[in-house]
Each structure stands twice: as structure tokens, then as C-alpha cells.
Design a binder for these strands. Structure first.
Lengths: 106, 106
DNA sequence: TTGACAGGCAAGTGTGCACTTGCCTATAAC
DNA sequence: GTTATAGGCAAGTGCACACTTGCCTGTCAA
């Protein structure tokens, strides 16, 4: 008797890794407020508005993770690279763990 | 001139930490499928269904993180401790980063 | 053409955390 | 009362990853 062993493989590990970091979440907050920012802009606003004085490279790496997860799409225009948020991958969270409807209070 | 410096503080850091780990996500999957499991049950099902042979203590620690984040509520009954999933904290994710409505296709 | 600006590749570092093992307490069954 | 079962406290370890610094390429302005 030959039983195949099938272990479920997670669909979107990148998504959770992406939102698992506080700096990356703050970047998403920023892009929600002002979509289409450049790296330079994001760095500046993180510093001024969030007291987050990370290096340019750190933020660049974070953006790469967000892009890999599909939460950010980029558009290059000359020497500028604009970053646009895309929240649709988050849909899979509430699909995976459905949020209960409000139960009527007795 | 005395300017107060106000840096936004994140509302629910625990939530993202909780779902940031793959084992914890799998535990949530398990409780979605069969709510009210004990530690022993969860360990067994993780091993058999997910090929996840973690130690009992590792899973216990994960459950503590999930409970701290409000994603799991526990009920002790004698020597058993039943774990119940509560997905309502996940609501804050789509509130924080609203998911765009489907744009009509041209 | 030169220098400034924007962003990227690469390598290295420190530490938080997911894991382990050892030992314990409480409850239940016999 | 003794043994089995369920879960917990505690301490230690290894490594993934968020960060750094150095240097580079491409674009743009003067």
C-alpha cells in the first residue's frame, strides 16, 4: 500500500512576512496617505512624521519585500521610482480566517 | 516656542507579530477547522496533518502569543485547557489599509 | 562634460525569537 | 496513595533578518 504524503503548502507566506515588520507597516500607512512616493520621499516622511530615521538602504530593502509580496507596485520614470500601494493581497487574510459576523446581543 | 513631538504609536503590534509566524498561522488554521482544541490535540494534528513535529512547549509558546494578541481565548476545565479562535482583531487590518473595491473593467 | 541626485548591489553585524531540554505543578484514573 | 496525563516555568541556543556601511550605476541639470 503506497500512501502519498501531502502536506499543505501555504499560499502567501510573503504577505505575512511583509506586514510582520513595524517599519514596513508604517511604509504602507504612508503610501495609503500619499500614494506614489519615491524612496527619497518615503525616507523623509518616515523621519519627520514617524521619528523613524532609518537608512535609505533599509527602507529600500523594505520596499523590495513589500513589492515581492504584491503590496507595492513600482513605476520607474527617469531617475525616479514611484511606489504604489496595492492592498488586494490582504483579501486573503479574511478569506483564510473569516471574521465572524456580529452576533446579536442577547 | 515649545512644540510637542507626537509620534504615532501603533495600535496592535501584537496582532502582526502573531500572524507573522508560519506555525502560528497553521495553528489558527487548525482552530478554524476544529475550534476548542487542547494543546495535546493541536500538537497531534499539526504533526499528522501538517508534518509539523514541533515540541509541545514550542506550540504552547505560540498559543501564548496568539492569546496575547487576542486571536485565541482559552477556557480551563480540570486538567484540560481548550483554545478558541477569535478572528475579530483581524478586522483592524482592512480598516488600516482599506481594500479597494473592484474597479469596473473597461 | 561634470557634478548632483536617485536608487541599487554587496557584505557584514547584532539581536529577537522560534526552537530546544529539563524539571515542575495540577488534575484525573485506578 | 500511586501513577498517568495535561500543561507550565525556566533557561539556553542558533539563526533569520533588520539594520549598517561602502561603493556603484543611471539619470538629470548646469
Amino acid at each position: 500500500m503506497h500512501l502519498p504524503i501531502t502536506v499543505p503548502v501555504e499560499a502567501e507566506p510573503d504577505l505575512f512576512k511583509a506586514i510582520g515588520d513595524a517599519t514596513r507597516r508604517t511604509i504602507l500607512d504612508e503610501l495609503t496617505e500619499k500614494d506614489g512616493q519615491t524612496l527619497f520621499e518615503i525616507c523623509g516622511r518616515l523621519t519627520v512624521k514617524h521619528g523613524l530615521a532609518s537608512s535609505r538602504q533599509a527602507i529600500s530593502q523594505h520596499l523590495a519585500v513589500l513589492e515581492q509580496a504584491g503590496l507595492v507596485h513600482t513605476r520607474r520614470q527617469g531617475r525616479y521610482k514611484f511606489h504604489h500601494i496595492d492592498t488586494s493581497p490582504l483579501r486573503s487574510i479574511s478569506e483564510r480566517w473569516p471574521i465572524d459576523r456580529e452576533a446579536p446581543n442577547p
